[in-house]
Design a protein around this nucleic acid. Structure first.
Lengths: 226, 226
DNA sequence: CCCCAATTTGAACACATGTTTGACGTAAGG
DNA sequence: CCTTACGTCAAACATGTGTTCAAATTGGGG
């Protein structure tokens, strides 16, 4: 302690500052000096408390994961007898909330978003443990709406269509705003976005199984990909 | 050799190597020495041909943009009398192709994807010039399917829902694969993905206007965001 | 043949980074 | 009071970075 009581405090400040700066600038662009300055600590404090910049990054990710799960658990606090439509809306809204969290830890899930664009081996496991339970909940909701005729692949694809919309509206928000410069606010706030994604996805799920869509024959692409 | 004729060749090799390495490791993580080594050129060649690492990055982005537009133009080679459904499928397929391009320039659109996660001021303009025309095409298709009763905001949101699905299925593919480890191939190849996104989105657009969905009242979130 | 401009090269520079060191200050125990 | 352990701090270290420079190399023209 330096002193009594203060010992863990700088560690916690370091964790918070690291999460915020890592999420804003990425792992490489963020410097330990910037983090320690934001945390009002010395450069050596990182090595003392965490060992290295890498381990600090890992610790910040685990901390963010724990905080996100604590604030927005997959159950969402809904009554178990809620309709699938309500549960879908609640799931979408909670996901958007987790992705845009700006209250105490503005960076909670943005770290994970950045990880997906530039994955690091150790953290894939963390992402997996964080995303898998929530995704199971979503698939249950989707399966309920699709009905018994849907196979697992269709359920999985539709669930990812829902997640993809949410991630895009939040993560690519600066790009979307630039695409509609005249009326950037047209896209709307979080609740309007949640309503749109839920409405769009609900209509999609209801008409998915009975769709008469058959992909037309187009000129084949040169190389095989994916 | 060094002279005459070869002068532009190293510049082209530099451009190719820069695009590949920048797209794989990001701007900060990529080093000029790695790029010049991949291009079989000297470190000083970057400064000689482009002036700096930043300008090389900008040149690589513009080069990638031009190549992507040349290979997969927004018109998609469809007959002008094609149905909106066919045009939607073709647009989705072309977008997926652009995002997964692995033939000659595996990194064509991945640079843009990385830019969105970690935007740099100068390149936002490039992204804007690249994405805006294609997005106008998509909005026209979406407006056709939605019908005359849809306002601009609804069209914009639905168009972004389509784009978001495509980006998610391609960019977050490693995450999706980890979510379904038992049957990773279940999601399917590019054509299957294009068929799913088109089917999902078509059902959504057809039912969007006549949807009876009303967002249920949930406990409000603490902070206002976005 | 020799000179010239363009291009490439290896080596060095200045700087920022992550990391380490050793001293300093603060409490607790004898 | 002295010792000890722990946390903090400023300063320095080693390394890798982008950048720069002058010499070397190339092919074409007088």
């Amino acid at each position: 302690m330096t002193n009594s009581g203060r010992e863990d405090e700088t560690r916690a400040r370091l964790l918070d500052a690291a999460g915020e700066i890592f999420s804003c600038k990425g792992f490489h662009a963020a410097t330990v000096r910037e983090i320690t300055k934001a945390a009002r600590a010395n450069v050596a404090a990182i090595h003392y408390h965490f060992g290295s910049k890498d381990r600090l990054y890992l610790a910040a990710l685990e901390h963010a994961h724990a905080e996100a799960m604590r604030l927005y658990p997959p159950e969402l606090g809904l009554p178990p007898d809620a309709s699938p439509e309500t549960r879908l809306y609640a799931y979408v809204r909670a996901l958007l909330l987790r992705l845009t969290e700006k209250n105490r830890h503005a960076w909670l899930s943005r770290l994970m978003a950045r990880e997906m664009a530039e994955p690091t081996p150790q953290l894939a496991v963390v992402v997996e443990r964080c995303l898998a339970p929530a995704n199971a909940v979503l698939r249950a909701i989707v399966a309920d709406i699709l009905g018994p005729g849907a196979d697992a692949a269709a359920v999985a694809r539709c669930a990812q269509s829902v997640v993809g919309q949410c991630r895009h509206f939040v993560i690519d928000r600066p790009v979307i705003a630039r695409l509609y410069p005249e009326n950037a606010a047209e896209i709307g706030g979080l609740d309007a976005l949640a309503a749109h994604v839920a409405r769009f996805s609900l209509a999609a799920l209801r008409g998915y199984q009975t769709s008469d869509f058959a992909p037309p024959q187009l000129e084949p692409h040169s190389g095989d990909m994916l």
